[in-house]
Amino acid sequence: MPAVKKRVEFKTGKTPRRLVEGLKHTVSALYGVNPDKYIPENTRLTCIDRLCIIHSEEACASQLRLAGIRVLYEGGWLGVYTRNHVLPSTVLANSITRERGPSSAIIVSEQAVKSFLYGNDILPKSVIKIYPSTIGVYTVIDQLDQEVIGFAKWSKRKNVYVNLYDIGFFLRTLG
C-alpha cells in the first residue's frame, strides 16, 4: 500500500486577549488564586489542527521569530482552548493543587479514570469526593496518586460530568 502523507495544520501567534483573560478568569474561579502569579504577561497560542494550546512566551524564542524562524512551541504549557472553553493545563492545575490542596475538583475512582482517559464522561457514582465549583467546571483528579488528569463540566440534563479535555489527548490528538 502506498504511504499516505499525514497532513497537519499549524497556526501560531500571540494569544488573543480574550483567551488570556478567559484563562485568568477560569484559574481564579477554580482555585481562588491570583492568576497573575501563574500566567505570565506574554503568552503564545499554538493551534494544531483543532486543538489550541496556550503556552508561555520565551524571550529567546522571540529573537528567533525576528530572524524569520518559525517557532511552533516554547516554554511552559499553561492552558487549552477547546470546545469553546479556555481551561488551565493539567501542569498548571497540578502545580496549584499541590500548593493549595484540591478546589473545584472531583476525585474519581480507578475505573472512571480509565474511561475518562478514553475521552468518556464521568458518572456521579464514580466520583469519590467533590470539592464544589462555582462555575460548574471541575478539575478531575486521579484517586490513586492525586494527579490532575483533565477537566469536566457538570451537566444536569445528562446527569454526568462531561469530559472537556483529558490527558488522553496526548495519544488521540498529538500522538
Binding site: 517557532v71 516554547e74 498529538l174
Partner: peptide, 21 residues
C-alpha cells in the same frame, strides 16, 4: 513535530523551543 510538542507537554518540560526549518 506535532508528536514532539505532545511529548514536551506530556512530560511537563518547559525548556524546549520547537523550531520548524
Amino acid at each position: 513535530l506535532k508528536a514532539l510538542i505532545g511529548h514536551a507537554m506530556r512530560m511537563r518540560l518547559d525548556n524546549i523551543i520547537v523550531l520548524w526549518s
